[in-house]
Design a protein around this nucleic acid. Structure first.
Lengths: 181, 181
DNA sequence: ATCAAATTTCAGTAATTACTGAAACTTCGA
DNA sequence: TCGAAGTTTCAGTAATTACTGAAATTTGAT
């Protein structure tokens, strides 16, 4: 590893826990991400100085996040791994997986809690707050879904507009004039 | 705790680790969030069946995330805690804190890596990929900042539009006609 | 079918993170 | 300024999570 790659890999290792993955998984991803060629498990284990089995588990997790993909090289029995380099694609994948893992279970729980009959005034208030939480998460979730479908260019344009989009909305509001909200 | 609150609190405890907080911190937040009144540390410890000191640390962490705020009750020396109930405010706070903790350190690292002189072809390719990662994170970061400033209503409208915003952008692109991108 | 290379699984261990209870500290009324 | 109520700190311990190496399994060429 060159010093440049080393500092990148090191950082991903340190940040891993903050991002919900462990050190090795973070390092494996970083290494694959910057590598000009697809890497095999042994190379990764050697470079990072960790066990082959640890790399195997790490790659499995990265595949479950769809952050790396397997590749076969003709005349070589080993499996090689590479990472999508298109940043937008990576962002989309990450957003989708996070929604699935971090939001969906909560939505399910909230939906079932909202079907219960409140047994007290405290329950009624609790349910009210759960409802507002549910509605927001649901909205965000749907929005993510929609945004997934936009192409990178449109998305970038939208983001670069930033808060100017507000003016745009005001404008269309005027065009449609009397429509609700 | 009523069964309703119990299932909510239990879920937040289980999801905690996925969200980057621990079980107790998740439970404390959930309990405060649905409570009709502000709670003191002892009530929380009793309700959750964990130690007073654990609650103290948990509250400190929740305050660092700005998810709960302290409140003083006249004639009572104890500190009480409540959670903002406006879902949009909570979302904004969470987005801002996550940006600060999960994105900013990486931006800093990337910026310094991009200043280095690549020592090889591999370094050059690595740097190229780091640059695309940097540019996206930077764009997202700025966008978050902008979106922070929108009021809840505008934000909700924008989200409800979902991918229809694309059509709107196409429209404005036509209006401005020959302008770049 | 057999063998060797490659990969995965898993039980045991290391490292990390969470939690507790006791002690130290802070705050405020008397 | 003293003391009691409240809060925080911290060293020790419990629980969890990460990692390893050996054994088992899979894969594909002969």
């Amino acid at each position: 590893m060159t010093p440049l790659v080393q500092s990148f890999v090191g950082h991903f290792g340190e940040m891993g826990s903050r991002w919900g993955i462990n050190r090795t998984v973070g390092q494996i991803y970083a290494l694959i991400f910057v590598s000009p060629t697809a890497l095999c498990a042994d190379e990764i284990a050697d470079t990072l100085g960790c066990s082959r089995s640890n790399v195997s588990m790490g790659l499995k997790e990265l595949q479950s996040w769809r952050l790396v993909k397997m590749k076969h090289v003709a005349g070589d029995r080993r499996e090689f791994f590479e990472a999508p380099t298109d940043a937008w694609e990576v962002f989309r994948t990450l957003a989708e997986e996070r929604r699935r893992r971090e939001m969906e279970p909560t939505l399910t729980m909230l939906r079932s809690a909202l079907l219960e009959e409140p047994g007290s005034e405290a329950d009624r208030i609790a349910q009210e707050r759960m409802r507002s939480m549910h509605d927001l998460i649901d909205l965000m979730s749907t929005w993510f879904d929609d945004v997934q479908r936009l192409d990178a260019q449109t998305l970038a344009k939208l983001m670069r507009m930033g808060s100017k989009v507000q003016k745009l909305l005001e404008l269309t509001g005027q065009l449609k004039s009397g429509s609700k909200e």
